[in-house]
Simulated scan of single mutants.
Amino acid sequence: MGATSVLDRLAGSLVADPELVTLAPGSFDHPQPGEFLGEGHPVAAPRILAKVIGPLKIMKYQVSASEYGRCVTAGSCKAADTPGSGNFPVTGVSHIDAEAYTIWLSAQTGATWRLPTDAEWAYAAGERFRSDIEGGAGDPDNPARRWLAQYRTEASLGRKSDPEPRAQGAFGINSKGLADVAGNVWEWTSTCYVHAAIAANGISIVSSIDNCGVHVVEGFHRTYMSNFIRDGKSGGCAVGTPPDNLGFRLVRERLNVVRAALRHLGFS
């Protein structure tokens, strides 16, 4: 049995380990997240060759209400705003809540769990990834034109309100093997909101400021929410109709074999 198989089996023998999808390393054309200004007015995000280094182990399903509930029972997570149980995705959780869950799950399993980056989520989402709703070139004399163009673009995509969470798997499996990508539960990532100035070539970033009080949220399209928001409809969505629900799925980064073995034997 290979070393990787041993690690996976050991991790799964502790707390019920979430089902994972393992994606091979790769690269892809990707629009950068954030707000970008060219000559003082909004412009489309520059595109880069994003790279995912090393195998990416990501949850097949979003964290369920029952999985999150165990963290709440342990006193390590705050109860979600939206009641739920069983194999329904947990919703009504903030970025702060998601981070608390990663800390608890890591302690329970001996593995390191974290939120995916924007690029990792997009890579795993495959054909279901949709970037920011763009409004075309900004008009410095009338910024409302760009806002209206953004709303018209979103309206043309035919999205309808769909507030009730559904059982895991209800939105099907994408080409990468992940379930419910871009369904009605939008997902927190670890990527901070960026405000950047673009050079005249439309590619190079002249300056940028990270705002880690706001993070990238992925779903029907990419948007940005303040870390404390638990209900996307309460405010904080940068563009368009707000998310129906906020939830998350995690990446398993590595497994500490010694720590996992001690947990399995009943030692803290």
Rank of each mutant, 00 (worst) to 15 (best):
G2H: 10
V6T: 12
D8V: 11
L14F: 05
L14G: 15
L14P: 06
L14T: 15
V15C: 02
V15L: 11
A16Y: 04
P18G: 12
L20E: 15
T22A: 08
H30I: 08
H30P: 04
P31W: 05
Q32C: 11
G34F: 07
L37K: 10
G38T: 03
G38L: 09
G40V: 07
G40N: 05
P42F: 01
R47C: 12
I48T: 14
V52M: 08
M59H: 08
Q62F: 05
V63W: 11
S64K: 09
R70P: 08
A79N: 13
A79S: 13
A80I: 03
D81R: 10
D81A: 14
N87E: 10
F88C: 07
T91L: 01
V93N: 01
V93Y: 00
V93W: 00
H95V: 01
A98P: 05
Y101N: 09
A107T: 14
Q108P: 01
T117F: 04
D118P: 12
D118G: 12
W121E: 11
A122F: 00
G126A: 13
G126H: 00
R128M: 08
F129V: 09
R130K: 11
S131T: 06
I133W: 03
G138S: 09
P140L: 05
N142M: 01
P143G: 08
L148V: 13
L148Y: 07
Y151K: 14
G158N: 05
D162W: 00
E164H: 01
Q168Y: 06
Q168T: 15
N174V: 05
K176N: 15
L178Y: 11
A179G: 10
D180T: 10
V181S: 02
V181H: 02
T189Y: 05
Y193Q: 15
A200E: 14
N201P: 10
V206E: 15
V206Y: 03
E218C: 08
G219V: 10
R222A: 10
R222F: 02
Y224E: 12
M225L: 13
S226K: 00
S226C: 02
N227T: 12
S234I: 01
G235P: 03
G236V: 03
V239Q: 01
P242D: 10
P243T: 08
D244Y: 04
F248H: 09
R249I: 12
R249L: 07
N256E: 12
V257L: 07
R259L: 11
A260F: 01
R263N: 13
L265M: 08
G266D: 03
